Simulated scan of single mutants.
Amino acid sequence: MPFNPLEQRGIPLDRQMRTWRELDVQPIDPDRCDPYTRCRIITMNGIEIEAVLFSHHMARHCPDQDVRRQLAQTRAVEAQQQKAVNWLLPGVASVLETTIAYEQVAVDLTAWVARMEPDPYLRQAYQFGLLEDFDHLYRYANLYEMIEHRKAEEIVQGLTEIMPGRPTKYHHRDPTDNVRDPYDRSRTDPLSKLHALTIMSAEQQTMNFYLNVGPQYMEPIARQLYQEIGLIEEEHVTHYESLVDPGETWWEQLVNHEYNECYLYYSFMEQEPDPKVKAVWELHLNMELEHLRIACDLMRRNDGREPEEVVAPELPNVLTFEPNKGYVRELLATQIDLTTLGTGYVREAHERFQAMQALLNDGDRPPSERVMEQHRDMFGREYRLETEGEHPEPSLRSHD
């Protein structure tokens, strides 16, 4: 049955603040949970962090004290939601275990969005970033076996394959070539707005996670790999945030944020097998419905428009975490050698690309290459997880 969040009433805002006991959620069991439960948790943590950060930025640009107070009230609840969601992750998991789960999110979330995206230009942007995150998963999986002597298949459980994508050493581009053309807010499908906001938020949280946890390692190769991939995640945030139309008003963006949270909590509630986690998704959905109502009222009063002018009249099909092996393999076979030039994509190593490679490498091999060399020295092989069929070895001959 279609679900229209604009017609739903949630929990009144004055009843949404939780006690310490209520915020003390029971974490998932990393050895028994569905890997996609962990992925949903990581995704919603990134979504909630984006909601809080956006609200702060909006408040800093808003001269109306009443609006700023309203934003502060809603933001306080969003901050509690973020804590409850992120604290579902177990403390017994190592940083590298969580890192591999972050990259599983990046692969399967981005693949699903790319498959469902109606706009060809936006779809290409997701496909491009997907092949890079796929390679990050591969590099971290090899680091995980080196440092913790465990296999990443215990984390992804065969739902996501682990093998080379577009080699990480080729992800370092001139910053100007990470800026894409934005969608047109007056013409784009409302689903495209949700996709762009979702992937931008997820990549932003991945960037934040790596820049905070990278220095916690003692092993030089681990510190260096987090530093390299953390810089690429910054490129990805630039890549994805530039897809959003900068002409959207603050009020329009606020409604899009709240609508997207309703969409994702509803989606995850519909597919969550863990009853305790599902209860969190359901509770937060009922909170977000009220946040959306408040945002819509602010838009009417301050922007003079109805929310139906900018969002869909009902939620699209639920966003689903599911295996995307065949889709990723097809992209590996057809798009492995792409890089960016301006707002488009090319297969040649153009002058700006070569200059950036020379500047960063300075005759040295990047950490993403050295981690593989050290792994081969230690184990006599690379770590991979291929679940079916054969793959051609990815190459970037046009860049060599």
Rank of each mutant, 00 (worst) to 15 (best):
E248F: 05
E270A: 15
G380L: 00
M269P: 00
M218D: 14
E282T: 13
M17H: 10
K276P: 00
P118A: 12
H375P: 02
E314C: 05
A84V: 06
I336Q: 01
R370N: 06
A72E: 13
Y266H: 15
W251C: 03
Y259P: 08
R68C: 15
D297L: 12
E235A: 13
S55G: 10
Y102W: 05
S242D: 03
S201D: 10
A333W: 00
Q124D: 08
Q216R: 15
Q357S: 09
V371P: 02
S192N: 10
V67K: 11
Q253N: 04
E390M: 06
P2W: 04
N4V: 01
F209W: 09
T340L: 09
R384V: 00
I49K: 11
E117L: 11
H399F: 15
Q227D: 07
E78S: 14
F209C: 09
L23I: 03
P27D: 12
A355L: 03
R115P: 02
L109K: 10
L23D: 01
V52H: 10
L159A: 14
G326C: 01
A202M: 07
L231I: 00
E282R: 15
W251K: 05
V67F: 04
P313L: 01
E145F: 10
R347E: 07
K193M: 14
I47A: 13
L298I: 04
P316G: 04
H291L: 00
A333F: 00
L109S: 13
Y265K: 11
I41C: 02
D364K: 12
D189H: 15
A358Y: 06
E330K: 12
A125N: 13
D377H: 13
P215R: 08
L292Y: 09
E235T: 07
P182H: 05
T168V: 04
Q26M: 08
Y266K: 13
T340A: 15
Y327G: 00
N302S: 00
Q354S: 03
R301Y: 03
L225V: 00
Q16E: 06
H236W: 03
I147K: 08
A222Q: 06
S368E: 03
D108W: 05
E272T: 12
A93L: 00
E48T: 04
C39N: 13
P30H: 02
L360Q: 01
V95D: 14
R60S: 11
Y263F: 15
E228A: 05
T343H: 13
E203V: 04
C39S: 15
P323C: 07
M146E: 09
N208W: 05
Q271T: 14
D24E: 09
L385D: 06
R370T: 08
V237D: 02
L13S: 10
L243K: 03
E219T: 02
A355R: 12
I294V: 12
L225I: 01
A59K: 08
P90S: 15
V52Y: 10
G247V: 02
T99V: 08
E322G: 04
F268G: 06
T176F: 08
